[in-house]
Amino acid sequence: MPLRLDLVEGQRANLSAIERRAATLAPRRSVKKEWQAAWLVRAIGLIDLTTLSGDDTPERVRRLCAKARNALRQDLVEALGLSGPVTTGAVCVYPTMVSTAVKALDGSGIPVASVATGFPAGLMPLKLRLEEIRYCVAEGAGEIDIVINRALVFDQDWQGLYDEVRQMREACGPAHLKTILATGDLKTLRNVARASMVCMMAGADFIKTSTGKEGVNAVLPVGLVMTRAIRAYEEETGVKVGFKPAGGISAAKDALIWMTLMKEELGNAWLKPDLFRFGASSLLGDIERQIEHFVTGRYSAAMRHAVA
């Protein structure tokens, strides 16, 4: 849609109210026993299983893809009475690893997500950022996680941000576009709210909290601001936009809190992978460990689970 500055500048963030609301999620909203196990199985299907390390190798990516295809151990699948293997929502890698991941996931239906546009800083010429997107799509990536230019937010240059993201949306072609706001760098929740709205207007399919490389990554107050921006955008346009918290989500209990936030703020539609994802590398291991506790009544050592 065209950029509407009135809608962007109308975004506000009441810090104390946001913090009070976020603080209610963990102690007052919980699921137990078989309901918790069901939510955790659902959470597995929401994970973008990620490796974004400087020492990534094709073999590491193939191992990650093998885990994505069989995300829950077979004996646990059978104990829960599930049909077929449990898979993750996607596998997320660097551009040079996209073709390896595509081959490893062939026939699984699991999409490959690639970071792009000079991840994690995004401080590359726009022409090169757009070319990197096209490269990833040509290699087979079905989802592109781009980073915005934070300087445009600091300058309140909403037209500049809109124009860049719009061009990135066009470069993605058929691939889904996830815009990473790097909220830990944006300093204020008002900046987060306004940048979220601009990215959605420019055509983002998802808005995402973090690269995982900032000092502060996915935290509930930021998540609340972004989900309410998504709700405001849907009320204005009728279009549903997805949400992806990333960075620092490594415990099953944290996944349940984020899922509670989505259910209460946006509804059940955002508990499915087409509208909600976790960006995580170690979360899957703890979820599998918690499900084993439900099945056996005992906690296993983390080393007994395949490394995610």
Score class of each variant (00 low, 15 high):
L152M: 07
E288V: 14
G215V: 06
A301N: 12
R194N: 03
S16Y: 09
V216R: 12
V225C: 03
E78W: 03
V239A: 09
E214P: 02
R129A: 07
E292I: 02
V93S: 03
A302N: 07
P27D: 03
W158D: 04
T51W: 00
T96E: 13
D155I: 07
F294R: 11
E9S: 04
L25K: 04
H176G: 10
Q74L: 12
L64M: 12
I180K: 01
S300G: 12
K178C: 01
K213F: 10
T50E: 05
M259V: 02
F278E: 01
Q36Y: 09
P125E: 11
R4L: 12
M1V: 05
D274Q: 15
S210F: 00
M1N: 12
V222Q: 02
R28E: 15
M124P: 01
I287L: 12
I146S: 13
V192A: 04
P221H: 03
F294K: 13
A301D: 11
G203C: 07
Y299V: 14
K32N: 04
V153E: 11
N149V: 06
A38Y: 05
G203K: 03
L271I: 11
K178S: 03
V192Y: 08
G109V: 06
G279H: 04
A23H: 09
T51I: 01
A218T: 01
R289C: 07
A121C: 02
K208E: 02
D286G: 04
R150F: 06
L181S: 11
L123H: 10
L220G: 04
T179K: 00
T24I: 10
A193N: 07
S114V: 09
P2C: 02
M1P: 11
G212Y: 03
N14L: 07
L266D: 09
G142E: 14
G140V: 02
Y233P: 12
A252N: 02
V91P: 06
I291S: 14
G247P: 08
G140Q: 06
T237Y: 07
R277K: 08
